[in-house]
Design a protein around this nucleic acid. Structure first.
Lengths: 189, 189
DNA sequence: ATCGAGGTATACCGACCGGTATGGCTACCA
DNA sequence: TGGTAGCCATACCGGTCGGTATACCTCGAT
């Protein structure tokens, strides 16, 4: 659904991603998305079928891009397994400094999707599971005594930092990084 | 605004709290709230003025009730400063087991309120600041070497656990409690 | 040469949005 | 006894919601 997008569909998804993240899903109507993408509603519906499916496509692509961006950032800013682990928090910090930062797009989406059967929810679940697994992989490489335990803690700190950073409290991610260092030292082989 | 509520206003706020938390703010219309409270829209507007003000009142009261509930829970389930600190996580766990748990109502509200001037946002900020301060107070009593540092970490773990618990990953709050114990031991006098 | 895919534009649908207006009823208090 | 606070019911306002219908255009591939 994402690779074989027509040019118009591509524009729609880009615009939808920005508006959904910036203003919230319910706050943005399909008409506004179509207009901002320079596309008629008919084209939008021909490409995505419904608003719910457009929302799901937004989340799927956000997940893909996040994984790619994070891996690239870590690879570029770290030169040892231990550094890679902590670089995740530095990446988080870099992301939060963006002017349009408005918390975790997946968590925000979850807040607006109470329906347990909405396909978007499982995309969010999968994203968090991936983050935990990524931490576990890095912790294993870094020689942590219990990589699974550390990965769970790191996920908590990571999600906590994202929430706290969006509530006007400064230094959240640096704080999370320090806590992760302590927990890693405790868990080191 | 909250104490001097008329009986009809009281019902409106109770119903609004349940619907806003359970379905999201934008997803619930004033008409649905009025109907569920057995009240006309005119009465709703006479009591609260606008939907935004009703949302704000919901957040203010949620904050009040949370503080009272948490303090009472901690007082009942702990008998030493250290136990009190960790009991906050047990309280979190008890709250998450409720059938209607749907993440942090304040964080969810933030996701739906991008407007930086909305009065509801500062209520959310204040709630998080209070949590941090509460942790600091407990950490001081428990003899932590750096109560401020520990309070920040505890807030991260607490918010992280709430997010992670709402993404289908089990054991988040128990994990957070264990991490808090480790960090507290590291920070103990 | 044609035909379908991917567009455009405009108009429409019923339902709902937040918010207001009119009017009447009861109960308590000065 | 008269007012007013609180509440009811109904109807209305302009605007927007997600989604559909009709009709026309323009390509590139067969």
């Amino acid at each position: 659904m994402l690779e074989k997008l027509t040019p118009a569909g591509r524009r729609v998804l880009d615009v939808a991603a920005e508006l959904f993240y910036g203003q919230g899903i319910h706050a943005v109507g399909v008409e506004a998305i179509a207009a901002a993408a320079g596309v008629t509603k008919k084209t939008l519906y021909a490409c995505f079928g419904s608003k719910d499916q457009l929302v799901t496509a937004y989340l799927v692509e956000r997940d893909q891009r996040w994984r790619e961006w994070l891996r690239a950032w870590v690879a570029e800013h770290a030169s040892s397994p231990r550094e890679e682990l902590l670089a995740v928090f530095d990446a988080l910090g870099a992301w939060m400094e963006r002017a349009d930062f408005r918390g975790c797009g997946f968590v925000n989406a979850l807040a607006e999707i109470p329906d347990p059967d909405h396909p978007g929810r499982s995309v969010v679940f999968e994203q968090k599971r991936w983050m935990r697994q990524y931490f576990e992989q890095l912790a294993t490489a870094a020689g942590a005594a219990d990589p699974g335990e550390f990965a769970g803690s790191a996920l908590l700190l990571c999600e906590g930092a994202t929430v706290v950073a969006s509530t006007d409290i400064p230094g959240a991610v640096q704080h999370a990084r320090r806590a992760a260092e302590v927990l890693l030292a405790r868990s080191a082989a």
